[in-house]
Design a protein around this nucleic acid. Structure first.
Ligand SMILES: [Mn+2]
Ligand SMILES: [Mn+2]
Ligand SMILES: [Zn+2]
Ligand SMILES: [Zn+2]
Lengths: 165, 165
DNA sequence: CGCATTCTTTTGACTGAATCAAAAGAAGGG
DNA sequence: CCCTTCTTTTGATTCAGTCAAAAGAATGCG
């Protein structure tokens, strides 16, 4: 993997994503997209911290604005697992679902169990017209299973990433 | 329906529910249980307001305490739909799901699509051990469909209840 | 019943996450 | 290069909930 090429490609991609959605290309927006590409399911604060390195001085409010704009324009998706601040990802439009670790909050992707949105149809809709079915699985991530086995030490570092190998 | 009998039965029931869980029987707890029985999917604030009538002077903190205690002891379930404060209900242990109106926030119950928890099994669990599958349907409630048809007036009264007929 | 222990509730301060609004700054079209 | 419009910054503010100490009530027991 040519890391440099990957990063550069990502930035180019960010610009065209933004333009494609009719949004101006700005440094905070590019930086947020790059950060989300590197770390799916990041919270606003995670993004803020990631960006502090690449683009110091960026305000927290700018991160909220950008994330909101991305979500409003279909460039990012927001998920809000119970007990966690909102998290964002660039993977949109494929109706995938999430597993959340009840122990450390780690989030991983789960491909849709059935097919396409809404991927589940309840029998009784109580008069509602359904647009979407959101599935959240709750469980224990591999790291926390490990920690439970070795009844040891302090809380481990936060695991925001998806795709636990 | 003998309203008086129903209410009384509910209060009696509240006391035995509490005792059964090893919790002391107090007025705030009884009142919260009665309120939840009358209004499933109520928020802490909804409960606070409902109780203000039956038991004036009850603190907001007491409502939070009671709801937390009920949830911790399996007497109530907490759901946290995105964009809404937590909601509570006495219907526990049957792994049912929810439809939330994206327009007004109304919540209704949906029986589990498959059977018992976890009612859905993803193919790839990314190393997680799954305890539970939570399904949230998003859509438009009957009232809001109606309002959309008649492109009229102001926002309608809040609909907290489940079971839109 | 009356008392002691333990659990609850009240009060009031405080936090995290997010939003609002006004002023300053940058992007992009001409 | 400049003007308009959109973004970002700054700082205040809200909402939902938590924390902690002191006061009050429920249960168990003599
Ligand atoms: Mn995802
Ligand atoms: Mn329910
Ligand atoms: Zn974990
Ligand atoms: Zn509605």
């Amino acid at each position: 993997m040519r890391t440099h090429a990957v990063v550069e490609a990502t930035q180019v991609d960010a610009a065209s994503l933004l333009r494609g959605a009719g949004l101006r290309v700005t440094k905070p927006r590019t930086a947020v997209i790059v950060a989300l590409a590197a770390t799916p399911h990041a919270s606003a604060d995670d993004v803020f911290q990631a960006i502090a390195i690449a683009l110091p001085g960026t305000s927290r409010q700018a991160v909220y604005n950008v994330l909101g704009d991305l979500a409003d324009n279909g460039l990012a998706q927001r998920i809000e697992p119970a007990g966690s601040p909102a998290r964002y990802e660039l993977r949109v439009g494929d109706n995938h679902h999430h597993i959340v670790c009840t122990s450390c909050g780690a989030v991983a992707d789960v491909d849709c169990a059935v097919g396409h949105a809404p991927c589940l149809t309840p029998h009784h809709t109580a008069g509602f017209v359904i647009d979407e079915a959101e599935v959240t699985y709750w469980g224990t991530c591999a790291d926390c299973q490990q920690l439970a086995r070795v009844p040891d030490s302090s809380s481990h570092a936060s695991a925001i990433q998806g795709e636990t190998p």
